[in-house]
Design a binder for these strands. Structure first.
Lengths: 222, 222
DNA sequence: GCAAAAGTGTTATCCCTACACCCATGA
DNA sequence: TCATGGGTGTAGGGATAACACTTTTGC
């Protein structure tokens, strides 16, 4: 194998912004750093890219290792390459963001016992490295994509009601939506299938259950 | 300085998709590779990230070295990290795309004499590495951004007519636009300033010259 | 029968699209 | 005066936004 010997080689990491909706709030999964630098501070989960894995494989591996969650939506966000963003040595990070459905979040790290914890976005503490900026950019992307894609479906469990879906939109956008208009427009997209089933969870009318017509597909709309 | 010794370090490059509009067509600047691998094949200009420069600085440096052009619009596109995308060794590339105004393209590489050449998009030959995919993604991003931002202004010289601007839109989108509707919507954005000057270049009515109200600013619209 | 969330249509407004003729200039 | 690109307004249709009451169920 030819080597490109006269060039510097650089440590490369992936960091993953993992979003989910828990307890009616948009939350992000952070890990507490066990060693220097930034020991004891919270940071995005992430780690070094190995020579024998693709960058995306690395992000998926980190995601699985930190949360135990597999098969969730994962999208490359942006690469951060300032010279001194890591005090140890030159490290470039390729950031991803992931969406975890409501019902998968309990698998690991949902408890406070672990060194990983879900934080409501407004309550995120100081973060290591440039992770605050990465988080902000991921949040921005998530809000934007809500408007022109079906990405919200990636945060839903296999079956869900229209009210639950609407709540996800409202939580992420931070503002209420009109129920009738929401239903009209989401159904007009044709991306939902009626399961025929209903779910009642109290002394009131049970709701129709839907599922994503095409799982694992995010459609760009408009 | 602490070292993260147990992790692999990886060669990192930037590759830049440089677009401009020349002779009424959208073109991309390619360079002919002078050495293996892919010797003699056309490729995106790019090179290795040095330890003492940020990734964006690297992209800007490559851009200047290949075209002599500075101060043009440059935006990070995506990072490509498949394990064997380079036959020599593991190389991750962070791709950028750049837009060069109509009048700046002649500085270098505009002639066929150089080892760099502008190719109309439809006439791009086989490219080295995964550069075909990178080019396709950049093209897609350019078209998309035309629809929801003022990015087209980055391809204009300091002063331009509305007809010239409309032509840029038409060339990139590959379809004609209605003159009156175009003028209405572009002026309504408030991103153009009337210079008060006019330009006549023939035996007919001279056109009003405009300039971008805020240079170097790409506004997201809608 | 009551409490709670599910479900359902219509109207007004705004935005986008389609479309054709006169204007200013240099030769 | 003619050839050429520059410049302008309106009307119809489709999409979006605002808005309130009836239905279904468990207790």
């Amino acid at each position: 194998m030819l080597k490109t010997d006269k060039f510097d080689r650089i440590a490369v990491t992936t960091d993953v912004v993992i979003f989910s909706i828990i307890g009616g709030a948009l939350k992000v999964l952070l890990v507490e750093r066990g060693r220097e630098p930034f020991k004891g501070q919270w940071a995005l989960p992430g780690g070094f890219v190995r020579a024998d894995e693709s960058v995306t494989q690395c992000a998926r591996r980190e995601l699985a290792e930190e949360t135990g969650v597999v098969d969730v939506y994962l999208e490359q966000l942006y690469s951060f390459g300032a010279v001194d963003r890591d005090p140890r040595e030159r490290v470039i990070t390729i950031a991803y963001f992931a969406l975890v459905p409501l019902d998968k979040t309990s698998i690991r790290a949902a408890s406070d016992a672990s060194d990983a914890r879900w934080f409501a976005l407004a309550k995120v503490p100081d973060l290591a490295f440039d992770h605050r900026q990465i988080l902000a950019q991921a949040h921005e992307r998530l809000i934007a994509k809500l408007g022109y894609s079906t990405i919200a479906l990636q945060m839903m469990p296999p079956e869900f009601t229209l009210s639950e879906l609407q709540e996800v939109y409202e939580i992420i956008r931070g503002q209420p939506l009109d129920k009738r208009n929401f239903r009209k427009s989401i159904l007009a997209l044709g991306v939902l299938s009626d399961t025929g089933k209903k779910r009642g969870q109290g002394p009131y009318r049970p709701a129709q259950l839907y599922r994503a017509a095409e799982l694992d597909t995010v459609t760009i709309i408009r």
